[in-house]
Design a protein around this nucleic acid. Structure first.
Lengths: 198, 198
DNA sequence: CAGCATAAAACGAACGCTCGTTCTTGACGC
DNA sequence: GCGTCAAGAACGAGCGTTCGTTTTATGCTG
């Protein structure tokens, strides 16, 4: 038996995968997970049915792959913010800059909304989402730990509990903005400072 | 001729409508908006195809009707809390009691998640959601106004801005809990008090 | 008070269509 | 010429909805 020598470069294969996932993201933003048909997605990718089914064995697998990547951008941004060791309000402000970008054209937040809904229905997606959002909370916890180190919060602070409150401000802002259209980041931050700096 | 007299009582007609909507809610919680087929919903209601289509002319109309009612329970609860004129943290605690109930069996929050996702896709649902969540924010604003009246917040507070921050704590908590499984209301409130009472 | 007339209400088989997926076919690099 | 990959026609299942028919509830009539 011979070794499976790849006919095309591995980069080519990954590029095809990315091409499909990019098309899926575009379709999912426009039409949602379920109203996007495989035909829609295939046409958007500029590929054939057979080609797409070579890389993903079902639509569910594509949805799962998308769900895996949906927090990627924010995750990375939060780690950058953590390294700057800012006060809590400034950190949140910096995080929300990325959130506002993700809400705009090309952003992943409309897809995140779809994934949240799917997580309520499909255990496989729920498991992925749980993993990603627990990790995201872990990243935000660094910001709270910075505040303890700097003396902004007392030494004996229950860091996990504070993080859960702090964390909720992020999707809370995003959801409020996507559903009601307001507030913008600066109004929100002004209100938040009034609430926490007393 | 005077047979504009209804053949069946109006209560009966409304009851049938509610019967269909109750079935829809049960199905939507279990399978989501799109994976619930009309057959599923009709079977759950114990009716026939024709009967359901007498009361709603399409599946979209049923979804819209569900979206209309999804904030009802919380809205009512917040108004009750507002009448008690509690400090901000106590008010939030009281609101989250209702949120925890809505997350459990029979609660509307899993449906709310579906509606949020649909609002990102379907302008008709987006309009309904916008209306409901703007009104919900208005109800929460009363809690912030109480805090100004009582002196907990300064007289010149930007009430709308503070409300937007305060508001975000509600879906922020709900979403975090539904996706990650933690925290419970009491841990969350402990963290929140540490964050705002300084 | 029968019993008939009438229209609302409920029924469910059937329809056209689109879905996600499979499979046969052929092209191309080695 | 063999193995890999792409193409896209074809398929069965299941979708939302329609519509002709049957059942039910009521008022009218004799």
């Amino acid at each position: 038996m011979l070794w499976d020598v790849p006919r095309v470069s591995e980069e080519h294969l990954n590029a095809r995968r990315e091409q499909i996932l990019d098309a899926a993201r575009a379709c999912f933003v426009a039409k949602g997970l379920h109203s996007t048909s495989m035909q829609d997605l295939i046409k958007e990718a500029g590929l054939s049915v057979g080609a797409v089914y070579r890389y993903f064995k079902s639509k569910d697998e594509i949805i799962a792959a998308i769900a895996e990547t949906v927090t990627g951008g924010i995750m990375q941004h939060i780690e950058t913010v953590a390294a700057q060791r800012l006060p809590l309000a400034e950190s949140m402000d910096a995080v929300l800059v990325a959130i506002e970008i993700q809400m705009g054209p090309g952003g992943h937040l409309p897809i995140a909304l779809q994934v949240w809904a799917e997580a309520a229905i499909d255990p496989a997606i729920a498991a992925i989402a749980k993993d990603r959002y627990v990790k995201l909370r872990g990243a935000l916890q660094l910001l709270v730990e910075n505040a303890v180190d700097s003396g902004e919060l007392p030494e004996d602070t229950d860091v996990a509990a504070v993080t859960s409150a702090y964390y909720s401000l992020v999707p809370g802002f995003a959801l409020q903005r996507m559903l009601t259209g307001t507030p913008d980041k600066d109004s929100y931050m002004r209100g938040l400072r009034l609430l926490i700096n007393r």
